[in-house]
Simulated scan of single mutants.
Amino acid sequence: MSASRRRHREVHLGSRSNWLRAAVLGANDGILSTASLVLGVAGAGGSSAAVLTAGIAGMVAGALSMAAGEYVSVSSQRDTEEADLRLERRELAADPAGELRELAGIYRARGLPADLAQEVAAALTAHGALEAHSRDELGLEQSRRARPLQAAGSSAAAFSAGAILPLGAAALASGSIREGAVVVVTLLALALLGATGARLGGAPPLLATGRVLLWGSLAMAITYAIGVATGGVV
């Protein structure tokens, strides 16, 4: 295969950043927070009904909380982007020649000769001045713009999907093996999530997997210990 054909097949990963971040964060929280909650209640001596009720309540509340948090956070980012674009529109209307010089200066700073930089700036301005300035001056590429609804939906769906795994383990296992089943299922799910997220994001899978396993194990151990201590006191 020629080099030119390989270049045409390149798939860049930056456009995945918005939904991938929300989905990985949501799934990780769903798995880990639900597992920790279930283990904490079980460690305190809660009945099967109490463990499952706590897990279901945690899943629903967590999914709604993640959706709301992502929507508010990403909406704030979107508002900032829109404010920058409104300012840029006003500047383009008030001083188009000055904005053209500014755009040409950006291209000169990136290594283009002065005449070519001016020519490129003029061509891109004619094609779409606001688009050129938003991309090259403000760094706001369309594929990476903040999307609040997408982030909220991805996060809530991923949280729910993740929470189902430890919750299912708690429901299917009984008695003395419940806690062990929840821990095993949770660690397997976290390992799979870490490897999948790394693959989708183009990161080293071993590092990502080890990271989520380390923090996941620590969170479950602390929560279970608190549950045991609380159950003993109460």
Rank of each mutant, 00 (worst) to 15 (best):
I226K: 08
D115P: 03
P96S: 06
G168K: 01
V120F: 14
T186L: 12
A61C: 04
G128L: 02
A229Q: 09
L52D: 00
A49D: 14
G168N: 02
I56M: 14
L218N: 00
I226Q: 10
A157Y: 02
L193P: 04
P113C: 08
L100C: 10
E119T: 13
Q150I: 05
R108E: 15
A203K: 08
V185W: 00
A22M: 02
G231N: 10
R90S: 09
L193A: 12
V38R: 11
L124P: 10
L172D: 06
A23M: 11
A151P: 05
G14E: 15
R78K: 13
G162S: 02
L20F: 08
D29L: 11
I164T: 04
L218W: 02
A94W: 10
G201Q: 05
R211D: 05
R9N: 12
D79H: 13
E70P: 06
G46A: 06
E137W: 02
G231Y: 07
I106W: 01
S4L: 10
T53Y: 10
L37E: 01
Y107P: 06
G197L: 07
V24F: 01
M59R: 05
T209C: 11
V184M: 07
S48R: 11
A126W: 05
S76W: 02
L167R: 00
L130Y: 00
G232T: 15
V11T: 13
S65M: 08
A219W: 07
E141I: 03
A94P: 03
L37T: 03
T53N: 11
A181D: 08
L64D: 01
L39H: 06
A163Q: 03
A22C: 06
A121V: 08
A191M: 03
E119W: 05
G98S: 01
L124E: 12
